[in-house]
């Protein structure tokens, strides 16, 4: 197997060049997918027979909850790559993805609470799904705080990577909480092996939104990582010429 692409990722300069090429595509894809998904889901999808229009919050809640968990898995993978292959870019990815993941978890929790009040009759219930999701938010806070608390970049990277990897145990707990225990939160509507418990005109806009959220995450992550790479490599000659070109372009 050819691993050159993987080792090339260790080079900040190569990353900066390739991500600059991907960024516009991802940004436009996110914009188009999210606007199409929002209009479709909020205005054109049929309402639910029980919940009426309040079910439409699913078009924000589910994509953000998906992202919250996927981003954490990404943090753990980046942590593993950082620990085993000592790749500096992995630490950049970990540090820059954590705040986005924390925001996604916040959105999922808030939209869930807003939906829970009319549907269940309560903003918050300490059931297994909600509690494990709250723990995920605290894990994100932990990674962010740890990254800022340690001044030495290498030790901070190591500590954050270990925390991210250990915390990944929470992800299967979130996923299966609704099956292992009695919870108020309903089981998954979408399963890999079965037909979704939702008609196609309802889940198609949801799929568009989920893809849009992933593109949005990728675009924001690349933007944040590019800035961080410039900051960390500020002594390198290619960064100086790049920054000079950028600032002169503005004048």
């Amino acid at each position: 197997m050819n691993w050159t692409w993987f080792h090339k990722l260790g080079s900040p300069k190569w990353f900066y060049e390739i991500s600059g090429r991907w960024l516009p595509w991802l940004g436009w894809a996110a914009l188009v997918l999210i606007s199409v998904g929002l209009v479709w889901g909020l205005a054109f999808a049929p309402e639910d027979y029980q919940q009426g229009n309040s079910f439409r919050i699913i078009y924000i809640h589910v994509p953000s909850a998906f992202l919250a968990q996927s981003v954490y898995v990404m943090l753990a993978v980046a942590g593993l790559v950082g620990l085993v292959w000592k790749m500096k870019l992995a630490d950049v990815a970990l540090q820059q993805a954590a705040p986005i993941g924390a925001w996604m978890t916040c959105i999922a929790l808030l939209t869930g609470a807003v939906w829970g009040k009319p549907t269940w009759g309560s903003w918050w219930v300490w059931d297994a799904r909600l509690t494990s999701m709250l723990i995920l938010l605290f894990l994100y806070f932990g990674v962010i705080a740890l990254g800022h608390a340690i001044t030495n970049r290498d030790s901070a990277a190591k500590a954050c990577a270990v925390l991210a990897i250990v915390g990944v145990v929470n992800i299967p707990i979130i996923k299966y909480s609704v099956e292992w225990w009695n919870t108020l939160h309903q089981p998954a509507t979408f399963k890999v092996t079965e037909k979704p418990a939702m008609p196609v005109e309802m889940w198609l806009p949801l799929l568009v939104m989920v893809l849009g959220f992933y593109c949005f995450f990728a675009a924001v992550l690349l933007m944040r990582m590019r800035l961080e790479v410039l900051r960390r490599e500020s002594r390198a000659s290619w960064v100086r010429s790049e920054v000079r070109a950028l600032t002169e372009g503005e004048r």
Binding site: D48, Y49, F55, W120, G121, M202
Partner: peptide
């Protein structure tokens, strides 16, 4: 008393 919603969605 809290209502539990199931995983099924459908139009009216």
């Amino acid at each position: 008393v809290l209502a539990k919603h199931d995983e099924n969605y459908m139009p009216p």
